[in-house]
Design a protein around this nucleic acid. Sequence first.
DNA 1: GCCCGTCATCATAGCGCTACGATTTCGATG
DNA 2: CATCGAAATCGTAGCGCTATGATGACGGGC
Lengths: 350, 350
Amino acid sequence: MTLEKAAAAGATRSRKRRKMQQVTMTEVAVLAGVSPSTVSLFLRKPASVSAAAGQEIARAIDRLGYVPNLVAGGLAAAGSRAVGIVVPSIQNAFFAETVSTIQEQFAEEGLQILLGHSEYSERQEEALVRTALSWAPAAIVLTGLSHSRATRDLLKKSGVPVVEMWELGAAAIDMAVGFSHREAGATALRHLASKGRRRVAFLGARTQEDRRAAARAEGFAAAAQGQATAVVINHPAPASAEAGALLIARALQQVEGLDGIACSNDMVALGVVFECQRRAIAIPDRLAVVGFGDLGFAASCNPPLTTIRPSGDIIGREVARLVLERLRGAARDREKTVDTGHLLVERRSA
Amino acid sequence: MTLEKAAAAGATRSRKRRKMQQVTMTEVAVLAGVSPSTVSLFLRKPASVSAAAGQEIARAIDRLGYVPNLVAGGLAAAGSRAVGIVVPSIQNAFFAETVSTIQEQFAEEGLQILLGHSEYSERQEEALVRTALSWAPAAIVLTGLSHSRATRDLLKKSGVPVVEMWELGAAAIDMAVGFSHREAGATALRHLASKGRRRVAFLGARTQEDRRAAARAEGFAAAAQGQATAVVINHPAPASAEAGALLIARALQQVEGLDGIACSNDMVALGVVFECQRRAIAIPDRLAVVGFGDLGFAASCNPPLTTIRPSGDIIGREVARLVLERLRGAARDREKTVDTGHLLVERRSA
DNA sequence: GCCCGTCATCATAGCGCTACGATTTCGATG
DNA sequence: CATCGAAATCGTAGCGCTATGATGACGGGC
């Protein structure tokens, strides 16, 4: 009996867990001569701690090199200061710009970004959302409005703020920031038509997967009614200059007297420009070219590229703003969508 | 017995905390008819749970829509399944490719990426590392070998595995994957020299901040000794086609009889190509151009761009491999550095 | 001098999960 | 059929922090 008890006690005592931290908040508290609660309070709301105590705590933190443990904090507070972001591709300059802007805005607020890319697959997106939710994130940012049923359910059930970006038009899960790609496509068509182009083509890359590129193609085709003869030509590979060269070759072959081109991406337009140089097709005289994206090189091109600017940076800023406002307690139905529009940047190519 | 329980319940009663979770592991365990430990074990090492129990648990998870809480898991396990990655810029295609590859590799292992960009500032890098460490990450991946003293100290003290990528040459904190930029610069010079170019220039963007671009410039200049007259021209803005156009204009003005150019980035080379088209300077006949990066458009250019491929994807793969091996228990001194080298891709421009 | 409101600080009880060691189960063996 | 070892399962004690409600300290008004 007594033996057993002693043995049990001994067993319990020998139980050791590896700590993850060398310096904890408690140690800071001890050194500062306050309680851990006060240290925690100081870290979260410095204003509600007296100046004297605050100074003491700050000194102790500095002296000990204390690094707060957000994992423990997140558990205790029932929610972490991380935001999950899922984009189709990190390598796509559009999303890179947006993610970059969001990260900047968040860094100031101490929010971390959990990033994933889905390769335009709803299945992968779902897996990424699932992982992100495992982190009890403060919010989740997705690209576009098309998601698997399971993704939507998961998100709704979790109650986490959700922002869908880069697309507007269909119903959003929670909040949305973006613009209508249909309209952007229509803008391209109208611009070409205004330049007297009547036999035009839309060159798309990966439109089976990229619903937004597909929407631009649709908008382009729809706006052509009675204005011009429009065809849509697609390439299954990701947008690239190479795809552009291939697509323009096919367009030239397919459309007799082709005189205008809209591309789903400036990279594709760049390929068109290169291929036209090779074939000595004058841009814009014989062929007008409109891009999409207003990527860095668009202005330096020969000729400078007329393109549609989606303003990925503004999208990023607005996404960050919505998330931040929600975190600061804005009502769930405060502001649901932001239309960032699109801008036709007219240069020389069309 | 009953009284005690009641008393305890009474004391606790008024205290309420908001739960972060609707479905917990305990509920899964109850439904599956096993203990929480077994569920946890199943989730981490399915092989060490009997097939029958495993099936039951899987069914319960599915039925309840259970989403594991990695925040709690991370706290209990003294370390999370997140990896902090800091790159100078997400918008830079080099790093985008590497991060993209790393993310793919990690997704399969259930590792999350915490991403930040430092804008080439050691101060910002330090802040990002500090935040990342707050997440008790499984590893931290940094770009380059130059970091603030505080960053190095922080990292060393934390004991977290560190991989520095995209650069080799100086001492690494822990592990490193990359290549010598000095050598890459030398390769560019040697290639130009082999083509008989004797009056050459290196066009760099942002070399005060981008130490790697600076190293390429140095390697280029050093290799020129006795081979050619080399100058280095720099532009303070980030690499872009526009910068390329500006730089080549300055180079042409500065160097009489200029016949060879190496660029710190394919984007800069693209600007050079455009500007030369405008000025009717024949590439490569009058001016040979070597880029860096082998970005998507390099092969479609007019003329196709001779460039140096740094293999950002291979770097990403190797980074992921080193991290994964370390997590699986490889010794801290198992393998420290991986040289991914660089590859001259000869096309038509030089 | 007493009461009360305000502000700063504190003690405590978990957040949901995992590691550890203990315990049980079960087939194989002598 | 008892014995043993391996495999499967379980009970428990935290991981480090924050939210909550309680306590103390202080000052103004009566």
